[in-house]
Design a protein around this nucleic acid. Structure first.
Length: 108
DNA sequence: AACTTGACGGTCA
DNA sequence: ATGACCGCCAAGT
């Protein structure tokens, strides 16, 4: 197993509690200078090859917008996954984002 | 080796 | 509120 930037990202994403969400930037910030928000999105992109135990749908952009939805199967798979966890989504935006936001640097 | 492309975010007009 | 720009940096071409 490697311990590169990607692995660190996976570790954090796996820790996002059910029904909560975080942002690419928050993860990048938590990892310090080891990466930018773009890198986090990149890391998640490669989870498609991975085993699939990574809840990538719980990562959205800083505005609670489902910017990564097109990388999931189906038309609205990402949205459906989040809704099934109790989040309210309207026009690809998480309405109760602030309440559901989980910040790794304060909650870990 | 050079250029483009992003699941991003902050700043400024 | 909206849009342009810039920094970010690994991968693909």
């Amino acid at each position: 197993m490697e311990h590169g930037f990607f692995q660190k990202v996976y570790e954090i994403v796996r820790r996002i509690p059910y029904g909560r969400v975080t942002s690419y930037g928050a993860i990048a910030e938590f990892l310090g200078s080891r990466g930018s928000a773009r890198m986090v999105g990149w890391a998640l992109n490669s989870t498609k090859d991975s085993t699939g135990d990574i809840p990538a749908h719980r990562v959205v952009n800083r505005n609670g917008l489902l910017t990564g939805k097109r990388h999931f199967g189906g038309k609205d798979l990402m949205k459906e996954l989040l809704e099934s966890e109790g989040l309210i989504i309207e026009d690809d935006r998480i309405i109760n984002f602030k309440e559901k936001f989980w910040d790794p640097k304060v909650e870990i």
